[in-house]
Design a protein around this nucleic acid. Structure first.
Lengths: 107, 107
DNA sequence: GCAAAATGCAACCTAATGGTTGCGCAACCC
DNA sequence: GGGTTGCGCAACCATTAGGTTGCATTTTGC
C-alpha cells in the first residue's frame, strides 16, 4: 500500500461517526470484540464488524483471535500521517500569512 | 452548529481526495476560483464548486465575491478540532500503554 | 449594446456506503 | 455429545456522494 493509499484509508476510516465511536471506545477501554462494541452502539454486530474491517485496513486497529472471540486493539500510529497532512496544510497557510505580513511591512 | 456537527463536517470534508487536493491548492497558492481549480484537476468546474461548498460548510474555506468571480481563501482553523480528536485518541492509547507498563513493573 | 467569461442552480446518473437479515461453522461448557 | 456463544460470509436494500450536462444570470470589455 502506497503512502497516498494509507493516507486515504485513514481519512476514510475517520469520516464515519460510528467508526470514530468504535475507535475511541477501543482506544480508551481495553481491547474489545465486535459483539461487545455492538452492545454499546445503536447498530448490529455485523455493522460493527464491517467498521472494524475498515479500521483494520487503515491499520488503526489490530485483531487478535483468542479462543472463539476476536479482540481488537487500537494502533493509532497511522493517525500521525493524518495529523502531518493537516499541519502541513495549516503551515502553508501560516506561511502565506507571514509572507503577506512581510509584504505589508515593506510598504 | 454544535461541536459534534462541526467535527463531523471537518472529517467528512477531508475524506475525499479531490477535496483534499482543492484545500491543499488553496492553502498553498493564492486564493483561487472554482474555474481555476478545475483547470488543474480532472473534474469539471461544477464538481469543484460542490467540493468548495462542502469545504465552506466545514468552515475550511471562505468565499469572497469580487466582480464576476468568486475567490476562495483557506481558513484552516477547524483542522485544530480534528487534530485535537486524534491526539486525544492517541493519548488515551498511550495512557493504557503506560498503565500496562506500570502493571508489568509491579509484577 | 452585445459577445464572452464566470457563477449558480437543477436534474440526472452511477457507484459506493452503511445498514440489515440469514446462515453455516468453530469453540466453549456441562 | 449437544446446546450455546461468537464470528464470518453472502445477499440484499436504501441512501448518499461524486460527477456530469444543460441552462439562466451577472459582469466585464469593446
Amino acid at each position: 500500500m502506497t503512502a497516498a493509499e494509507r493516507e486515504q484509508a485513514v481519512f476514510t476510516a475517520l469520516a464515519d461517526p460510528t467508526r470514530r465511536a468504535v475507535l475511541r471506545s477501543i482506544a480508551s477501554g481495553e481491547a474489545a470484540t465486535a459483539t461487545e462494541l455492538a452492545a454499546r452502539l445503536p447498530v448490529t454486530r455485523q455493522a460493527v464488524a464491517k467498521h472494524l474491517a475498515l479500521l483494520e485496513q487503515a491499520r488503526l486497529v489490530d485483531p487478535e483471535r483468542v479462543g472463539r472471540e476476536t479482540r481488537f486493539q487500537a494502533t493509532p500510529a497511522p493517525l500521525e500521517d493524518a495529523i502531518a497532512w493537516m499541519t502541513a496544510v495549516g503551515d502553508q497557510w501560516d506561511d502565506r500569512l507571514a509572507a503577506l505580513a512581510r509584504t505589508v511591512a515593506e510598504d
